[in-house]
Design a protein around this nucleic acid. Structure first.
Lengths: 344, 344
DNA sequence: CTGTTAGCGCTTTCAG
DNA sequence: CTGAAAGCGCTAACAG
């Protein structure tokens, strides 16, 4: 038995032509049941597997798509990649995971090289790459299909999938206001995944529910150092504000956790003296103390829908799918204690 | 300009044969400097990129390797995959990430199909798959090169890379003992990543340093539910023990975090009343409160070395690389408070 | 319903 | 140092 079994071998074993074997293997219906049976048995007996390279060469199809992200690590991206991988496999596709950081001029060229070599059939872009115009141009130039996750600009340019940040922020605002909070700290995280508009949505939702805009403090996260330190610094600034916020929205869980830590160190009780809500619902959110109230990102669903859109027949009209972000209330938020409400 | 640029087009543009272009592209040195120059310019001008499928077809090489893991999600695996991806890219290889869970009979067959289709050049196995005999047999049968991460059995069968669990546990034991702890709780996590021997190493190291074996309590983690609940249950059992442990080793950070949470809820001070150490050094370890003392898993280095071993020329003698696990002392461990040391 | 012919883009002989 | 011919394993087009 030869080391590598080709269509030819199967054809000989089954006493038919190579093309017929090809038909059977590819599920072409124009084959008689008996022939199909013979061939299938030969395939099974010989352990034949089609050579993807050969098939790809002649069909000019690769059965590969890529997902391009600025990072490979971190909860958000690794969940996204894992889910995309699963979705691709289910459809018989392979997924290439590409890292793309905009540091030098030739990054784009290297990416182009990689994309063209693989003869990809489509790409998924993750935020904030979804809004990288040069990248979108490249993809257009290569004639690649594209689905963007959480794009903020040029919404009609490609198919897209987003979580509904605005709805999430409204839910959170309702939660805070109904608990009786009146003074807020919001961390705005410009380059955060996946949206820079969260704090605007939240502010708007809060004001719309009667919160005094002067009692909403916004702090920018300093991305130049470790995120833990940046979060603590922002928390420190909130705690100096007058009146002091009784509720903080932290832009992400990775920011919420060190904020809570900092508050606890300062002798504050969480949530009694300070409620803190995060965003993402990462795996650790329910393991920390107190468990985090947070907005759940439907990451797996997002990835799944993105791949479905990518592999489904294109439609002339661009599709944009929006998924809700459920609020998961745990123990890091509650009504403020009376002393705080009255304070100052 | 044709949509797809082939060697032929470049050859015509440069006025040479296709083979010469091939030589230049592949860095063959038997080409005159002038010819090489002409060709390179034509390549650049036309934006030529070799077609991997064609190349793969004729060379029977795919420039692809796979990493096979039981999960796609979770810190340990996603870090491993990300690092492996980076290492592969640096060497001009592509990485296929495969999920393999042993649930049904035909899982192995499906994996075989996937591996054979892709004409892989090698695979990396992650724990506990590194000890799956049937999987190893399949890989042998397919004639695939293989590097295992943290194997526990059949050590001479393939190349391998491990973190030095024993050295790590010794460091931790020294830390605990030198802080003055005398009573310990150890969580044994049989199916945990990446080693079931940790608790044995730690117990041995502790005893060797004079700890009374009767004062080492070992609890099994119940994997049937959410890990948070299992961890809390184990912690509860420790807190009932007499004498009560003043130091707990938690098998992983994901277990350590809810244990600390539970202890805090019970009114214990951490680390004064109870020191807790984890293992892995996941990203959240320094963001929680108190920051976690933990053994750092050199995941990136492990992945990097595994890929290097896989792509380096095979050697007749199997190689096994062992990387140290540095102890990262943070604030979740300290000397026990006097009341606890004396208690019972 | 089935087989033949041709060729995808590249690299490997083996000659010049 | 360079080129011509052959073919990797598969499928598209056309016959039959």
């Amino acid at each position: 038995m030869p080391d590598i079994i080709t269509l030819q071998h199967v054809a000989e074993a089954a006493g038919v032509s190579a093309k017929t074997v090809s038909r059977v293997v590819n599920g072409d219906r124009h084959v008689s049941a008996t022939t199909r049976n013979t061939v299938e048995r030969a395939v099974a007996r010989l352990g034949y597997r089609p050579n993807l390279a050969a098939r790809s060469l002649v069909t000019a199809r690769s059965y590969m798509v890529a997902i391009i992200s600025p990072h490979l690590r971190g909860y958000y991206y690794s969940e996204l990649h894992a889910a995309a991988l699963t979705a691709c496999k289910a459809q018989g596709y392979h997924l290439l995971i590409e890292e793309f950081t905009r540091s030098g001029k030739d990054d784009l060229m290297r990416l182009e090289e990689s994309l063209r070599q693989m003869r990809l059939e489509g790409v998924v872009l993750t935020p904030p790459l979804s809004d990288d115009t040069a990248l979108l141009d490249l993809i257009d130039r290569l004639g690649l299909r594209c689905v963007r996750i959480a794009p903020a600009t040029a919404l009609g340019r490609t198919d897209a999938v987003s979580a509904n940040q605005e709805q999430g922020m409204i839910e959170l605002a309702e939660h805070f206001v109904s608990e009786g909070h009146a003074t807020f700290g919001i961390i705005a995280s410009p380059s955060a995944v996946p949206s820079e508009y969260r704090h605007q949505f939240l502010t708007a939702a809060l004001v719309q529910r009667g919160v005094d805009p002067d009692r909403i403090f916004i702090e920018q996260l300093d991305w130049d150092g470790p995120i833990t330190r940046a979060a603590r610094a922002a928390a420190a600034r909130f705690l100096c504000a007058a009146p002091r916020p009784t509720a903080i929205f932290a832009a992400s869980d990775m920011v919420a956790v060190p904020i809570i830590q900092f508050a606890l160190e300062q002798g504050l009780r969480v949530p009694r003296d300070l409620s803190v809500a995060g965003c993402d619902d990462i795996d650790i959110a329910e393991a920390v103390w107190p468990p985090l109230t947070t907005l759940h990102q439907p990451i797996r669903e997002i990835a799944h829908e993105a791949i479905s859109l990518l592999l489904a027949p294109a439609s002339a009209a661009k599709r944009h799918l929006t998924l809700t972000m459920p609020l998961v209330v745990r123990a890091s938020t509650s009504a403020p204690s009376p002393d705080n409400v009255n304070s100052k």
